[in-house]
Design a protein around this nucleic acid. Structure first.
Length: 772
DNA sequence: GCTTTGTTCCTTTTT
DNA sequence: GGAACAAAGC
């Protein structure tokens, strides 16, 4: 059993055999991190540590499952008792058990971001605020950021800094929205994603007996992808490991790509402070990629200032240079890449699964889908519009949610008139008002409607209530999730409504619901699941990650996904596409942030997914939100040392020796291609409006703005900005400062721009250059 | 109350 | 390209 240790190099061996005390593993890309984690757990178990005393937090549930299987191979079925999973799923499980201490029932609902946004929208409306100013996305981000830093709504309202920032952003009421939002979630017996971590912190802070129980239970705590944990997550692990001090974190600062959701590289620095006894192991040898790829990646990442000293290297073969491809349009980019895959497959005897196409945003997948389909190359898309976000799926899930938890306001709003029962918005509003006025829950009113309301809708409401009550009775009889879901799908009328609908969309939806029912069946039949109740199913489903998507069994497919989704994966040949300014690095980052370090790390992650071959591509023009835009090559390509790049940039597929060019029916134009809208692929889901918008004339490109900022636009120090100064802004052009006023710890300036008129800008954000 | 049609706004990445 | 909303007609 011990011979697995023989395969390890020195630092890997150190990491695996370190048993007690805090350990930090700085693991470069491709350095065998997963293997180390797996062996380390197996090794601990070999040393007599019980499986249920080990907690291992991974980035996806799938990663946890795979690791469990690998450990099982080494150590046996005992591995099933390991506590493994994502932060969210592990602590949702604990909150299910212990949440009673905080006033939640075990069947609490997990709100996804759509639910959260919908609730925020409702609250904004109720508070009679302007919904043009108060954007749900922004508010949710704000609340999420607060929760991830463990700032409760009380603390938020008390601290003038937050109020000041919100006032400066013209949204002084965010604090009160946060308060109402939290209270509404609580009374709905629901937690959003951030609450799962926030409430775990509260639980451990206020209920020391509970903390104690888990501190003693988890003798070893392991955290993978440590660079992507936020404060809230970090504090949970610190508390849990306070007794035994056996905490092992694995991460790579160069691959930190989740700062936007609160991840904090500082955690790695703080870690050294919190654990003076810390042992640090660095895994620097890359076993994954060729020398060329590792060196190119290093030449890029060294442009970042914030990073730890590390020397990643490869002893593998030299490898090919990185190829850069320039295409005319996004569609041509798709065709070139698809052709490239087609040819490479034949020439080098590779399979579909050896290729990955990585992009910055999900919306980019379309051109590649179409091109691959034309060449009959199988592909799969990870992420994007997920199965569980489709309307018909959310509808059935809402029924299931409401059966389990009648306080679930968002589920209620979805299903009360679905299928149509003649209960309109007016009636729903009336129910909510009645509930609020009498200090009752919505269900109290709905369940006994004749006591509170009169009118023609009451009978319909009564029918609905009776239906739900019948489901509740079944639930109490401990029926399993599949029995429940099947019964509800049939008797609610949802399935029937879709069955009757014989349009293409309707049939696709019906199929989707069947697929959902199948997955409930699988959940129930899986021997690894002890608890097959509906409540557990719902919580599991709401915490599925992108990578957890079900496969149809055929692994031989080209993989397409965002770079974020590619973390931890590797492919023989990787295409990083859409390498254009404003796309990658993204427009947002260029506008809002002074540095591009996180974007650069993202590119680093993309590059280091490749084992043998890396191809970068960009297009000169592309459709963005229905508008044609012109693009420039990404600065990131030029940041790679030129000696690693193949200098000849192929333009178009006209130069390629495409003897298998199946697209020859639409040969690429010789001169500048007239830009045509993509054909609408024939598939279910094309809505009427899509067809219509396809028929509309193609939008003409807007004339270039009067003022276009130079690429190296550097903002000046605006701390001394005063009225009368002349300034330049990358987007608005030249302007005169009318007024500067301080507001809390930020200040804003009112500037009159020649082209845009008067604008109010926050000086801490604005990219302004003072013109002499 | 329901359905259709038109309009506007938003556009990063994810649990 | 799409979600969410408003308006208008049934």
């Amino acid at each position: 059993m011990k011979d697995y240790l023989a395969e390890l190099n020195e630092p890997q061996y150190q990491a695996v055999t370190h048993e007690n005390g805090p350990l930090m593993i700085i693991a470069g890309a491709g350095s065998g991190k997963t293997r180390v984690l797996t062996y380390r757990i197996a090794h601990l178990m070999g040393q007599g540590v019980d499986a249920f005393n080990i907690l291992s937090l991974t980035f996806t549930n799938k990663a946890a499952g795979e690791m469990r299987h690998r450990i099982e191979k080494i150590i046996g079925s005992e591995a099933r008792n390991l506590w493994m999973g994502t932060f969210h799923s592990v602590f949702a499980k604990i909150l299910r058990i212990e949440g009673g201490r905080l006033g939640y029932t075990p069947n609490f609902t997990i709100y996804d971001s759509d639910d959260s946004k919908s609730l925020i929208r409702t609250i904004v409306k109720e508070m009679k605020l302007d919904d043009k100013t108060y954007k749900p996305n922004f508010i949710l981000n704000r609340i999420s950021g607060a929760k991830n830093n463990l700032i409760s709504w009380q603390a938020y309202l008390e601290n003038p800094i937050f109020g000041g920032e919100d006032a400066a952003a013209q949204m002084p009421e965010i604090g009160r929205i946060y308060r109402t939002y939290s209270m509404r979630c609580f009374s709905a017996n629901a937690m959003d994603f951030d609450d799962l971590l926030f409430n775990t912190n509260i639980l451990f802070r206020d209920h020391l007996d509970v903390l104690n129980k888990y501190q003693h239970k988890f003798k070893h705590v392991m955290v993978d992808e440590f660079q992507d944990t936020n404060i809230s997550q970090y504090l949970i692990t610190r508390k849990l490991s306070a007794v035994h001090q056996n905490i092992c974190v694995v991460g790579d600062d160069a691959q930190s790509i989740y700062a936007f959701r609160g991840a904090n590289i500082q955690n790695i620095l703080n870690f050294k402070k919190d654990y003076p006894e810390l042992k640090v192991v660095k895994l620097e040898q890359n076993y994954r990629s060729t020398k060329m790829i590792v060196d190119a990646a290093n030449s890029l990442i060294k442009k970042n200032k914030n990073q730890f000293e590390k020397n990643t290297f490869s002893d593998n073969e030299e490898g090919d240079k990185i190829e850069v491809i320039k295409a005319h349009s996004d569609n041509e980019e798709g065709r070139i890449i698809a052709n490239n895959i087609f040819e490479t497959k034949l020439n080098q005897n590779l399979k579909n699964q050896d290729f990955a196409i990585l992009y910055r945003t999900n919306a980019q997948s379309r051109a590649f889908e179409e091109a691959l389909r034309k060449l009959n190359i199988k592909y799969r898309i990870i992420g994007g519009l997920s199965f569980y976000q489709r309307k018909e799926i959310k509808d059935l899930i809402a029924y299931l949610r409401f059966t389990v938890n009648q306080q679930d306001e968002e589920a209620f709003k979805r299903i009360i008139n679905l299928p149509k029962r003649g209960i309109g918005d007016t009636t729903v509003a009336k129910i909510i008002v009645t509930a609020n006025e009498n200090n009752l829950s919505i269900w109290d009113v709905v369940g006994d409607i004749h006591k509170y309301m009169e009118g023609r809708a009451t009978n319909a409401i009564d029918t609905f209530a009776t239906l739900i009550k019948s489901y509740m009775i079944l639930l109490e009889e401990d029926k399993d999730a599949h029995t429940m879901a099947m019964h509800i799908a049939k008797t609610s009328g949802l399935l029937h409504e879709l069955y009757v609908d014989k349009t293409v969309e309707g049939m696709a939806r019906h199929e989707n619901v069947q697929e959902l029912l199948n997955s409930v069946k699988q959940f129930v039949d899986n021997p690894e699941n002890e608890d097959v109740s509906l409540g557990t199913f719902l919580q599991t489903v709401s915490l599925l990650t992108n990578a957890d998507q079900d496969e149809d069994g055929d692994p031989d497919k080209v993989t397409m996904m965002t770079i974020h989704g590619a973390k931890g994966l590797e492919f023989n040949h990787v295409f990083v596409v859409g390498m254009e300014e404003n796309l990658f690095p993204s427009q947002m980052m260029l506008k809002n942030r002074d540095d591009l370090e996180e974007e650069r790390r993202l590119f680093y992650v993309a590059i280091t997914r490749a084992e043998k071959k890396l191809t970068l591509s960009y297009a000169e023009q592309r459709y963005n939100w229905g508008k044609l835009t012109f693009c420039e090559k990404s600065r990131f390509i030029d940041e790679i040392d030129a000696k690693f790049l193949k200098s000849d940039e192929r333009v178009g597929i006209t130069t390629a020796s495409t003897s298998y060019d199946l697209t020859s029916r639409n040969p690429p134009p010789q001169v500048k291609p007239a830009f045509k809208k993509p054909e609408i692929p024939v598939r279910p889901g094309n809505t009427r409006s899509q067809v219509i918008s396809h028929l509309k004339p193609v939008n003409q490109a807007k004339p270039a703005p009067a003022h276009v900022a130079t690429q190296d636009f550097k903002p000046s120090d605006t701390s001394n900005l005063k009225a009368g100064d002349k300034v330049e802004h990358p987007k608005f052009g030249f302007g005169d400062v009318k007024k500067v006023e301080a507001q809390g710890n930020t200040s804003k300036a009112i500037i009159h721009f020649k082209s845009e008129g008067e604008k109010t800008l926050l000086l801490s954000f604005a990219k302004l250059r003072i013109v002499e």
